[in-house]
């Protein structure tokens, strides 16, 4: 296992700097937002989640001939500890990988944070919430939504990389080729991402459902339903309006 993230020299200096600015802004917003997600109990959990993402990123799994993939972890971290904290978890992992393990170029840190922290969390967690809105409020739904959100988050990061490459790639390869190859292989990697994400979320749900940020609404509505089953939100309305 060598460089698993964007190294130095793929993206030119101006676009690397611009991506750095995007990353700094994103992390600043996340620092503000994370305050609302973190307390005496969830702060240690978030540290452990970052450590888990680091560990899981070491585990490259084969996806096609001569190609491997590894967890990005944005969707997983966001579901476990909240989207803002999730961004920070992945950013800390990327920072430590760049500084300690020579993985991911230091000039490309902004590109890597943008793709693997900001985009994966925005797409993955956004989709996760949307799905939970329409799915029944069960643990199986949380697992299924985790899976689907994680699948999509990985090609989304690949698309984001392709866009950044289009703006500032140091080589002159046709964008269609780059996009096609990047998205193709990352759909496969996304399946691995989804399996790891769904298994991890389900495991935590099984032992400590109260610790899963993304499942917090799960328990309360169930109580509500037993209390007052006859009054749903009211958008569908009563089937037969009694206008006698």
């Amino acid at each position: 296992m060598k460089d698993v993230h964007v190294p130095d020299g793929f993206i030119d200096a101006p676009v690397s700097i611009a991506a750095g600015a995007v990353a700094v802004a994103g992390v600043a917003v996340a620092l503000r937002g994370a305050r609302r997600e973190l307390d005496d109990r969830t702060a240690p959990l978030a540290g452990l989640t970052a450590a888990f993402v680091f560990a899981a990123q070491m585990l490259n799994f084969p996806v096609a001939s001569g190609t491997s993939g590894h967890l990005l972890g944005g969707t997983l971290a966001a579901i476990l500890v909240g989207p803002y904290t999730g961004i920070l978890c992945v950013s800390v992992v990327l920072l430590m990988q760049g500084l300690l393990f020579a993985d991911g170029g230091l000039t490309a840190l902004g590109v890597n944070i943008t793709n693997m922290a900001l985009v994966t969390v925005a797409v993955g967690y956004g989709l996760f919430r949307l799905l939970l809105r329409v799915l029944p409020r069960t643990r199986a739904s949380v697992a299924g939504a985790s899976f689907a959100a994680a699948v999509v988050s990985v090609p989304a990061a690949a698309v984001s990389f392709t866009l950044i490459y289009a703006l500032g790639g140091t080589t002159d390869i046709s964008l269609g080729k780059v996009a096609g190859a990047m998205i193709g292989v990352h759909v496969l990697i996304g399946i691995g991402e989804a399996v790891i994400t769904a298994v991890t979320v389900s495991s935590v749900l099984a032992v400590r459902p109260d610790l899963v940020y993304g499942a917090r609404g799960l328990i309360k509505p169930l109580e509500l339903r037993t209390g007052a089953p006859v009054r749903p939100a009211g958008d569908a309305g009563p089937a037969e309006p009694s206008r006698a």
Binding site: M1, K2, N60, V63, G66, S68, F161, M182
Partner: peptide, 15 residues
């Protein structure tokens, strides 16, 4: 873990 290049690395060297 697999020691094959990951998706990005593979695409980058292929293309």
């Amino acid at each position: 873990a697999s020691s094959s290049p990951d998706g990005l690395e593979k695409v980058a060297s292929d293309k």
